[in-house]
Measured scan of single mutants.
Amino acid sequence: GATAVSEWTEYKTADGKTYYYNNRTLESTWEKPQELK
């Protein structure tokens, strides 16, 4: 079936920290989303 993983994109900030952005909800988070675990 369809999965929600594709909504999240992993980015890195200029200082090398990783964060996650959800293209559907426009939410961003420092925590790894449940969908990616």
Rank of each mutant, 00 (worst) to 15 (best):
10 E>W: 05
25 T>I: 02
24 R>D: 04
23 N>Y: 09
22 N>R: 01
36 L>E: 06
20 Y>E: 00
37 K>G: 15
2 A>K: 08
14 A>S: 11
8 W>Y: 02
6 S>F: 09
25 T>L: 03
23 N>L: 08
34 Q>T: 11
26 L>I: 02
4 A>V: 14
24 R>E: 06
15 D>I: 03
24 R>Y: 11
35 E>K: 04
17 K>S: 06
8 W>T: 00
23 N>P: 05
31 E>H: 08
9 T>Y: 09
5 V>D: 12
4 A>S: 14
12 K>G: 03
31 E>A: 06
7 E>H: 07
32 K>Q: 08
35 E>T: 05
18 T>F: 07
21 Y>N: 01
22 N>G: 00
32 K>D: 04
7 E>V: 07
26 L>Q: 15
34 Q>N: 13
35 E>W: 05
24 R>P: 01
2 A>N: 13
13 T>K: 03
31 E>F: 08
14 A>M: 08
13 T>S: 07
22 N>P: 00
15 D>L: 04
2 A>D: 13
20 Y>M: 01
20 Y>T: 00
12 K>E: 05
37 K>C: 15
7 E>K: 03
34 Q>D: 15
33 P>H: 02
2 A>P: 11
31 E>W: 05
6 S>H: 10
9 T>H: 10
33 P>V: 02
24 R>L: 13
33 P>G: 02
35 E>C: 15
14 A>E: 11
8 W>I: 01
13 T>A: 06
4 A>L: 12
29 T>H: 05
28 S>V: 15
36 L>I: 08
29 T>Y: 06
2 A>M: 13
33 P>M: 02
37 K>V: 14
23 N>H: 15
6 S>V: 09
33 P>Q: 02
3 T>S: 12
10 E>I: 11
14 A>L: 10
9 T>F: 09
27 E>N: 04
10 E>V: 12
14 A>D: 09
4 A>Y: 06
5 V>K: 09
31 E>V: 12
33 P>F: 03
6 S>T: 11
8 W>E: 00
36 L>H: 09
4 A>R: 08
17 K>I: 08
31 E>N: 06
17 K>D: 05
10 E>G: 02
28 S>I: 15
5 V>E: 12
29 T>E: 03
26 L>G: 15
1 G>P: 14
37 K>P: 08
16 G>P: 00
33 P>D: 02
24 R>V: 15
4 A>D: 11
33 P>Y: 03
8 W>K: 00
35 E>F: 06
36 L>R: 03
22 N>M: 00
21 Y>C: 09
1 G>N: 14
10 E>F: 04
3 T>W: 09
23 N>E: 09
16 G>H: 02
32 K>R: 10
9 T>R: 12
14 A>F: 04
31 E>G: 04
1 G>Y: 11
